[in-house]
């Protein structure tokens, strides 16, 4: 019977998900040192690597053919957003206890949030220049963390050009984001930016990237370690909540405007 096979496949799919989670957690947090840089890999990285590698066409035989059945893969895509919702439901609990602190630190923290539009302002022209089109929408909307992933997957699904763009950025960010930030932060410090301003900017929306940027700053200016950590976490807290709204209300319209201008001009 066709339905029975589907049910068996689905049960296999759920069991597989549990196994992957267990394997990813077993591997745990791993730090890899490349040259003088330390890359921290969290279980979530191993979870996506395992599921993607095993999903490759080479492995689509026997049990993997059943786990990665057409129905199961489209189920995972269609309901990914629902699997993500509890993550979104957490942000209020992170922000609410610190709301007074955030308000007292003042408007500078809020102003610097708009700097996150730099992903569109700098990233989009570069992306168009090297030949990306709709992928660029997913790849430059933000730094490609859970917020953008959820937004793009809701609006376009991950099975689209936009979805591939954001997912590529997500994976690249997960693997290399910390290295990039631990290089950028000291370079900007060397260019003359104040350590306070750079600490405030470290809350880019990813806890590991924030940690990388602020740790790199602390390494350069150890006297200011406490200020750097305090500013960085406060701004991270702000981005984890405001980030969604900056994206939806500012980055999306700005990106649409710039994309239409640049792509149309290119066609003429």
């Amino acid at each position: 019977m066709k339905d029975k096979g589907k049910v068996v496949n689905f049960v296999l799919f759920l069991a597989f998900a549990l196994l992957v989670i267990a394997a990813a957690e077993r591997i745990g947090f791993q730090s890899v040192t490349v040259g003088s840089f330390k890359i921290g890999l969290l279980p979530l990285v191993f979870a996506i690597i395992i599921t993607m590698v095993l999903g490759m066409k080479v492995f689509r035989k026997g049990i993997f053919k059943r786990i990665y059945s057409e129905f199961n893969v489209s189920f995972a895509g269609k309901y990914l957003i629902f699997i993500m919702l509890p993550l979104m439901a957490r942000y209020g609990a992170d922000v609410a206890p610190k709301i007074k602190e955030i308000l007292s630190i003042g408007w500078v923290f809020i102003i610097q949030e708009f700097g996150n539009l730099g992903t569109v302002l700098i990233g989009l022209p570069i992306a168009i220049l090297i030949g990306l089109r709709r992928e660029a929408i997913g790849a430059t909307l933000g730094i490609g963390r859970e917020g953008e992933l959820a937004y793009i997957s809701e609006k376009y699904t991950l099975n689209s050009d936009e979805g591939r763009g954001v997912l590529s950025l997500y994976i690249i960010g997960t693997l290399f984001g910390t290295i990039v930030f631990s290089i950028i932060a000291p370079i900007l410090l060397g260019l003359g930016f104040s350590v306070e301003a750079l600490a405030m900017s470290s809350g880019v929306g990813s806890a590991s990237m924030m940690t990388a940027a602020s740790s790199a700053l602390i390494a350069q200016v150890p006297d200011q370690a406490e200020t750097i950590r305090a500013y960085a976490s406060a701004s991270q807290l702000l981005t984890s909540f405001l980030g969604t709204y900056t994206m939806v209300f500012l980055a999306v319209p700005l990106q649409r405007f710039m994309y239409n201008k640049m792509v149309k001009r290119g066609k003429q």
Partner: peptide, 12 residues
């Protein structure tokens, strides 16, 4: 971790 497990399968 579960979110990324689903994300990985969905892009297979």
């Amino acid at each position: 971790t579960p979110v990324l497990t689903f994300a990985g399968i969905s892009v297979a």
